[in-house]
């Protein structure tokens, strides 16, 4: 167990492991998302109030879920990096931010597309929508802050503090629909004991959420490889890992 943990902490090992896993994870994710999309668009019945318009939930809810869980990963990795001085944890945090930002954007826009016909408006400044928009800005702030430093270590530590401070927004997003009057309705799926949705509508949603999670891990694997290469650019193993690109092999950049 511990040797496995130590190996994971070794950059060349993580680089190889991520390289082997990424294609598999991506394909499983694509298959699951395809199944979930088919289930959501074709197999699930229309909603008794919203008709076929409710099917937007199959992309909106998983995106919103990912926007928050990726942030949780990013903040946890940042804290681990700060406390245990683990460079790879910082690499995971840095690699997560753009993916998380893209899912936050997706959650906001698909939500607007859903809100227009059902609520009668693209956007309102209620607590749920506003706190999710703030999440997008926190992601942007994190990435902007990183880009402002040329030295990786400084970028890691400073942006980690922002990521940890921003965690306070997660419970606000989640409970906004409970704590305040909002236009947005309460959670459907997270009441796991008693989700307010029938089984034939729920399963494609769960398949989508699992698919989106695996998709994130697959993209994370590729992005972490880039991060690790850049951070370890002077290490011997990097030149070996890049040997297939070296001029001696006849392949030039």
């Amino acid at each position: 167990m511990w040797t496995w943990f130590h190996k994971l902490g070794s950059p060349p090992h993580l680089y190889r492991l991520a390289g082997r896993l990424a294609p598999w994870l991506l394909w499983i994710a694509i298959v699951l998302i395809a199944i979930g999309t088919y289930g959501g668009l074709v197999l699930a019945p229309p909603d008794y109030q919203q008709g076929d318009g409710f099917r937007i939930i199959y992309v909106h809810a998983p995106s919103a879920w990912m926007s928050m869980s990726i942030y949780a990963v990013m903040a946890t990795a940042s804290a681990i990096g700060l406390i245990w001085r683990m460079k790879l944890a910082f690499a995971v945090a840095a690699a997560s931010a753009p993916v998380g930002a893209s899912f936050t954007f997706l959650a906001l826009v698909t939500g607007a597309i859903w809100g227009q016909p059902m609520w009668g408006t693209w956007w309102v400044w209620d607590a749920r929508l506003t706190s999710e928009l703030i999440l997008l800005f926190v992601y942007f702030g994190y990435m902007g802050l990183r880009a402002a430093f040329t030295e990786v270590q400084k970028a890691d530590r400073t942006s980690a503090v922002l990521a940890i401070v921003g965690v306070v927004n997660l419970p606000i997003i989640h409970y906004s629909v409970v704590w305040w009057n909002t236009l947005h309705q309460a959670s459907t799926v997270t009441k796991l004991d008693n989700p307010s949705i029938s089984m034939n509508m729920l399963w494609p949603l769960l398949v989508m959420i699992i698919g989106f999670n695996l998709f994130y891990i697959a993209i994370l694997a590729t992005r972490v490889r880039s991060e690790v290469l850049g951070r370890e650019r002077n290490a011997r193993w990097v030149s070996e890992a890049l040997s297939d690109l070296s001029p001696e092999n006849g392949i030039t950049a």
Partner: peptide
């Protein structure tokens, strides 16, 4: 899509683009 074609398909299309 029961009259919601432009909303449903644009949401799914945008998701595909982002992925």
């Amino acid at each position: 899509m029961g009259g919601y074609a432009k909303y449903v398909w644009s949401a799914f299309g945008l998701t595909l683009v982002v992925l």
